[in-house]
Simulated assay, not measured.
Amino acid sequence: MARWQPGTSGRLQAAALELFASRGYEQTTAAEIAQAVGLTERTFFRHFSDKREVLFRGQEQLTDAFLRGITAAPDDAAPMDVVAAGLDSGTAIFPDERRPHSRLRQSVIEQNPALQERERHKMSHLAATIGDALRARGVGEPAATLAAESASTVFGIAFIQWIREGEDRSLTEISRTVLSELRGLAGGNPARHPAQQPA
């Protein structure tokens, strides 16, 4: 995979994030983002339709990665095993070098209700797409929807853990741990932390 933030689009994204974090999303204009890297506002709009797209470009890449994993899963795989394959494929597009970018992006989103709503919509779209892919494999309802929503939830929880300060596990490793926790709950055997072990 190419290194994160290549070319003009990457420079604009990096500049936008820094400005959003320091000045606020609403207070930052597309022209100011472009000027920060020595470009014109016209150049900005050749790469992004608006400043919100700076934060949400890449949704298709994430969805496609999940679908590649789902497609590659064995035909006889159980729905949650298919989900596991999708999660492994989806999380693999987040190398550790991308973590600081993702952490800063999340901090900007958390400060703006409209951006939070857009992020929720992104995750809802991901779940719907996974559900369609599972149904195309012959998974019935409600299993397809339950598995798809689980995939989206596991990814979201794992992502937040991945961007925490001091975290050094890969997103894939964290995702597998969260999925294992979910499977334990679904099987009526939730994982216990040491402090929760019976005396």
Rank of each mutant, 00 (worst) to 15 (best):
A2M: 11
A2G: 07
R3A: 09
Q5H: 13
Q5N: 15
G7E: 05
T8A: 13
S9R: 14
G10K: 03
L12T: 07
Q13L: 07
A14V: 10
A14K: 10
A14T: 11
L17P: 11
E18G: 14
E18R: 12
A21Q: 10
S22Y: 03
G24H: 06
G24W: 04
Y25N: 08
E26R: 13
Q27T: 10
T29Y: 02
A30E: 02
E32C: 06
I33W: 07
A34T: 06
Q35K: 12
A36W: 04
V37F: 00
G38F: 04
E41F: 01
E41N: 12
F44K: 01
F44Y: 03
F45G: 01
F45W: 02
H47N: 04
H47C: 00
F48D: 08
D50T: 06
R52H: 10
R52E: 15
E53W: 01
E53T: 01
V54L: 00
R57A: 14
Q59C: 04
E60D: 14
T63W: 00
R68M: 08
R68S: 11
G69H: 10
G69W: 08
G69Y: 10
T71V: 10
A72H: 11
P74V: 11
A78Q: 14
P79N: 05
V82L: 07
V83A: 15
A84I: 07
A85K: 06
G86Y: 05
G86K: 08
L87P: 04
L87N: 03
T91N: 02
T91K: 00
A92C: 04
P95C: 08
E97C: 04
R99F: 05
P100L: 01
S102L: 15
R103A: 15
L104R: 15
R105A: 03
R105V: 03
Q106A: 11
Q106L: 12
I109Y: 01
Q111W: 02
P113V: 02
E117M: 09
H121C: 06
H121E: 14
L126C: 10
A127W: 01
I130M: 00
D132F: 05
A133I: 05
L134D: 02
L134G: 01
R135L: 03
A136G: 08
R137Q: 03
G140M: 02
P142N: 04
P142S: 03
A144H: 02
A144Y: 01
A147T: 09
E149M: 12
S150Q: 11
T153P: 06
V154I: 15
G156E: 12
I160A: 15
W162K: 05
I163E: 02
I163P: 07
E165I: 09
E165S: 14
G166E: 04
D168T: 15
R169I: 06
R169L: 14
S170I: 05
S170R: 12
E173M: 05
E173V: 08
I174M: 01
I174R: 03
S175V: 07
T177K: 10
T177Q: 13
S180Q: 15
L182E: 12
G184D: 04
G188K: 11
N189S: 15
P190A: 06
A191G: 15
A191T: 13
A191M: 13
P194M: 08
Q196H: 09
